[in-house]
Design a protein around this nucleic acid. Structure first.
Lengths: 182, 182
DNA sequence: GTTCACATGTAATGAGTTACATGATTCA
DNA sequence: TGAATCATGTAACTCATTACATGTGAAC
């Protein structure tokens, strides 16, 4: 988004798939091979910049399979069924292409906690304090989730580090801001 | 979002209006009285945690007017027409109610820049460097936009401070991460 | 025996974007 | 005279959520 004019962004070089589809592709590449496992990983590791729901992920897996980018097979192990996917050559290619294409990265953030704080009447200390506490709590929960991971690769550790720092900074800000109401 | 179980969130205490509607209400309360002015302000001040498009804002203004929460009048000044809104008593009440209600603040972030970095193959230095540069650039642009503001109220300054710190932290992370590829 | 973790899926709905269309004024 | 700013608006679309539905196995 351009913040000073109405000029529109360049169109994406490849609007074929949504970015969530590429996320799924990469997760499968990395060994998170069922919908359940992908969601669990994203919820833990990417919670501060990405999210996904089952209502999105299962249809997406079927679509990607239909497009020949992944292939799935049903596995039944001790009574439990799951559908395991693996990346096809075409899927690998499409993922690599997207990762190196020149699209402007979309940053689409909605932090209702911060919004509420911005909209609140700061004369009303109770309201500010309450919303500050809510923002703090949710941020702390996510920080704990991210900290609880032990990412195997350098890549994962760097991303984890970014999340930890950003969320720690947010918590510090919450504490400082609350002190001013002391 | 609960990150370790599938437990669903508590339902919102008041699902009547979307949070963007409350944003609009508060902007009008604060004197940003046309769709254009609201968007411009949000693009500048809230860019790191909120965004809005005209396709959303103009229908929303009409809806809120229809619901009696704001009232609008056409103003023509030196040939240019605009529609100025003001908050009604009912609108003020609804806004205050929302700000003090006990809803879990939704944090719905999609930072495609970070996602790309997480998904990239870090053996491929060119791809990582390119995505790092993109993330850096977009973050820097937003930081500049936020820094360029001179918010009149303590409230605005605090929110600005949060944005500056979070984005500065992100930039530092980008630089450090890039250095490792030196 | 009940809760938690594992596991997959659909239908209805909604929020928000993108693309398009229009037009005046101001400033270089 | 052309670009930027001010200004409003709609239609088509897409992405993603929420709520619902179902079932197994393991642990307490």
């Amino acid at each position: 988004m351009n913040t000073t004019t109405d000029k529109q962004l360049e169109p994406l070089a490849s609007p074929d798939l949504a970015s969530s589809a590429y996320m799924v592709l990469a997760m499968i590449r990395d060994g998170f091979d069922t919908g359940y496992r992908i969601k669990r990983f994203i919820d833990r590791a990417a919670t501060f910049f990405w999210s996904v729901s089952y209502g999105q992920i299962y249809p997406e897996l079927r679509r990607l399979e239909g497009a020949g980018l992944i292939s799935g097979r049903d596995v039944t192990e001790s009574g439990r069924r799951r559908r395991e996917y693996s990346l096809t050559a075409a899927g690998r290619e499409e993922l690599d292409r997207w990762l190196s294409d020149p699209a402007e990265p979309a940053m689409w953030m909605r932090n209702e906690g911060i919004l509420r704080l911005m909209l609140a009447d700061w004369e009303d200390e109770d309201v500010v304090r309450k919303n500050l506490a809510d923002l703090r709590r949710v941020t702390q929960e996510r920080l704990d989730a991210v900290r609880g991971l032990e990412p195997p690769r350098e890549r994962g550790r760097r991303i984890q580090e970014l999340g930890v720092r950003v969320m720690e900074e947010t918590l510090r800000w919450c504490d400082e801001t609350e002190e001013r109401f002391g």
